[in-house]
C-alpha cells in the first residue's frame, strides 16, 4: 500500500494525477464547448428527438438535461422506484419506510429477549 507507507510522496503523486485529470477534463470541456449559441430553422427540424424545440434557443444545456442518460436510461428502474414509490412527498408513504426500520429494531429486541428467556 503506497499511501500507508509514505503519506507525503503519496499525496504528491495523487495530486499530480489529479492535476493531470483536471487538465484532461479541461481540454475535453474546451473541445466540446459549443462555438456559438445561435439556432437556425434547420437545426430545429433536425432535432425532433422528443424534446421540446424551445430548448434549442438556449445557449447551453440546462442542468435539468444533464445526466439525461443516467436518469432516464441507465438507472431508469432504480429512479422509478425511488421517486414513485419512496419519495412521493406523502407522509403516509414515509411512515411505511420509517416503520420498517422501527420494525427491525423491535424485532431484534424481541429476539434478543426471547433467546435470553430460553437459555
Amino acid at each position: 500500500m503506497l499511501i500507508a507507507s509514505d503519506p507525503i510522496s503519496a499525496s504528491i503523486l495523487i495530486s499530480l494525477v489529479m492535476l493531470y485529470l483536471t487538465l484532461l477534463l479541461y481540454i475535453v470541456i474546451r473541445v466540446l464547448k459549443p462555438k456559438h449559441s445561435e439556432s437556425s430553422d434547420e437545426s430545429r427540424e433536425m432535432y425532433l428527438g422528443g424534446e421540446h424545440p424551445s430548448i434549442l434557443s438556449k445557449p447551453h444545456v440546462l442542468q435539468s438535461g444533464l445526466y439525461w442518460a443516467i436518469v432516464f436510461r441507465d438507472f431508469k428502474k432504480a429512479y422509478r422506484g425511488l421517486v414513485e414509490k419512496m419519495h412521493t412527498g406523502r407522509v403516509i408513504d414515509w411512515a411505511y419506510y420509517m416503520t420498517a426500520w422501527l420494525l427491525i429494531l423491535l424485532l431484534l429486541a424481541i429476539i434478543a429477549l426471547g433467546i435470553s428467556a430460553l437459555v
Partner: peptide, 23 residues
C-alpha cells in the same frame, strides 16, 4: 435497555436523517 435503545435509535436516526428516516 433493549427496549429503550430500540426507541432511542429510531428517534435519533430521525433527527440525524439516516436513510429510512431521512424524508
Amino acid at each position: 435497555s433493549l427496549a429503550a435503545i430500540a426507541f432511542t435509535l429510531w428517534v435519533f436516526t430521525f433527527k440525524s436523517a439516516l436513510f429510512p428516516n431521512h424524508f
